[in-house]
């Protein structure tokens, strides 16, 4: 069953076309790697998928529901229900605890699920720590937990391994793959880091 579908997408920035996707679909529980150098439109594509940006041309739809028929409020609700996002710079809210950051993603947070997530990701002992006090590795795990907290259908990850060494990059990628598989969510990773290419079945290489 197709979860996310993009057709005839064109998007420009600063008068220059940065994205052209004739057709792209991601099935439920699928894995997709968007590979390309900086400036090729990977983040823009993720934003289009999450409904944070509206496509200038073309259509994005989730389970048959076209984004361009949805109001801004409905798109916010769709994103909150179906998407989990791991940002390149993680974007945890520094003054909140790890637990609070994770629970921001759900309207009625399931604490048991949150505990199981933090246990699996190895940050159970950091639940009450302020996010600003975490190491980069801990913050990355907390960001992954937040992306999974609302039991999303699709997890989007933007450059999750770009600043990591090989071992760490492999570790984080496997974490993402394992956790999304456990959660039954599709995973779409945008990166310029070709090291993780072998871990994905489907790879879309974007040209600059």
């Amino acid at each position: 069953m197709t979860a996310l579908e993009l057709t005839d997408i064109r998007h420009s920035a600063g008068g220059r076309e940065i994205l052209r996707i004739p057709a792209l679909s991601v099935a439920a529980g699928g894995r997709l790697l968007l590979l390309g150098p900086s400036g090729c439109g990977k983040t823009t594509l993720l934003n289009l998928m999450a409904g944070l940006l509206r496509a200038e041309q073309g259509h994005v739809s989730l389970n048959g529901q076209a984004y361009d028929t949805l109001s801004g409020r409905a798109l916010d609700a769709l994103r909150r229900k179906y998407f989990g996002i791991v940002f390149q710079k993680l974007h945890l809210i520094g003054h909140l605890s790890v637990e609070q950051n994770i629970c921001l993603a759900a309207d009625h947070p399931d604490k048991t699920y949150m505990h199981s997530l933090t246990d699996r990701l190895g940050i159970a002992d950091k639940r009450r720590s302020a996010a600003r006090n975490l190491s980069h590795g801990e913050a990355q795990r907390a960001a992954i937990a937040r992306a999974l907290m609302n039991r999303p259908a699709i997890v989007l990850a933007d450059e999750p391994t770009s600043a990591l060494d090989d071992a760490q990059a492999d570790n984080v990628s496997r974490l993402l793959l394992d956790e999304t598989q456990t959660a039954g969510a599709a995973l779409i990773v945008a990166t310029h880091d070709a090291r993780i290419k072998p871990l994905f079945d489907t790879v879309l290489e974007l040209a600059p």
């Binding site: 999450a50 944070l52 801004g72 409020r73 916010d76 609700a77 994103r79 909150r80 229900k81 998407f83 996002i85 940002f87 974007h91 809210i93 520094g94 921001l104 993603a105 937040r146």
Partner: peptide, 15 residues
């Protein structure tokens, strides 16, 4: 602004 943008990305509407 980053914190607020994250909230928007997490599905917090404008209102």
């Amino acid at each position: 602004s980053g914190d607020l943008a994250v909230l928007r990305a997490l599905g917090y509407g404008r209102h």
